[in-house]
Computed example of a mutant assay.
Amino acid sequence: MASSTSNNRESLAFEDIYDIVKRNDKTQYDLIYRTLLAKSEYLTLMPDNDNYSILHYLVMYGLLDLFNKVIAIPNIRFILLTKTATKPQKDILQIANENQTKSSTHKKLYDTIDRLVTMDKFVEYGKNNQINECRKMLQQDEDLANLKPPYRKYYLIHHLAFADNKNAFDQLRSMCNFDMKLLTNDKKTASEVAFEHNHTRFASYLESLSPEMRAIREQHDKEKDKRNQAKIKRDEQVEKEILTTGGNNMLDCFTCPLTKEIFHDPVVLSDGFTYERSAIQQWLDLGNRRSPMTNIELTNVTLVPNMVIKQALSELYEKQKK
Rank of each mutant, 00 (worst) to 15 (best):
I232Q: 13
K102G: 07
P266K: 00
T200L: 10
M46N: 07
Q229W: 10
K26H: 13
A38E: 13
D143F: 10
Q229H: 15
R227N: 10
M137Q: 09
R289Y: 10
F263Y: 10
Y317Q: 01
I20F: 04
M250Q: 11
D91R: 01
K222D: 13
R214T: 09
D30G: 09
E318T: 14
D91T: 04
G246V: 02
H197M: 13
R234L: 12
D30W: 05
L286S: 14
N132E: 14
F273T: 06
E223H: 09
P88D: 02
I73P: 01
D179Y: 05
D25R: 07
L138D: 00
K87H: 15
S11I: 11
E196T: 08
H56D: 04
A312K: 07
Q171P: 07
K22L: 09
D120W: 01
L286F: 12
P88H: 06
L36P: 02
N165R: 06
I113L: 04
L286R: 15
D141N: 10
E241Q: 14
Y125F: 15
A145T: 00
P149W: 01
L66Y: 04
K26Y: 12
Y33T: 00
Q237T: 15
I71R: 04
M213C: 05
P47R: 02
E124F: 08
G62L: 01
P211E: 06
A203R: 01
T245G: 11
V301R: 12
P150Y: 01
L45C: 12
D235Q: 08
H197K: 14
D141W: 06
N167F: 13
N129G: 10
T105P: 03
N132R: 13
Y275L: 02
K319D: 11
T35W: 05
Q28P: 05
K90M: 09
H159W: 09
N128L: 10
K166T: 09
